[in-house]
């Protein structure tokens, strides 16, 4: 999940979720970066509407039962 948090952090900070930025954040956290994972993360996130996902995140958990997340 480190990669995901790095992306969310960049998103909230208004920065581009680019390979370079993700790597920078992960390295600052002392994470040994896996280039391929970064690449796949960045590609996937480009195709996702983060704002929408975050908005729904909170609306959803309630009705949907197993709130385990």
């Amino acid at each position: 999940m480190e990669y995901i948090y790095a992306s969310l952090l960049l998103y909230k900070a208004g920065k581009e979720i680019s390979e370079e930025n993700v790597k920078k954040v992960l390295e600052a956290a002392g994470v040994a970066v896996d280039e391929v994972r970064v690449k796949s993360l960045v590609a996937a996130i480009k195709n996702i509407d983060i704002a929408k996902v975050l908005e729904q995140a909170i609306a959803a958990p309630v009705a949907a039962a197993p709130v385990q997340a």
Partner: peptide, 22 residues
């Protein structure tokens, strides 16, 4: 087979991460 990503999975992880942060 690794090249085409499961976007739902990523959305799910984003949701989980965000909820955890909340």
């Amino acid at each position: 087979d690794k090249l085409v990503l499961n976007l739902e999975e990523y959305s799910g992880m984003l949701t989980t991460a965000h909820l955890d942060a909340l």
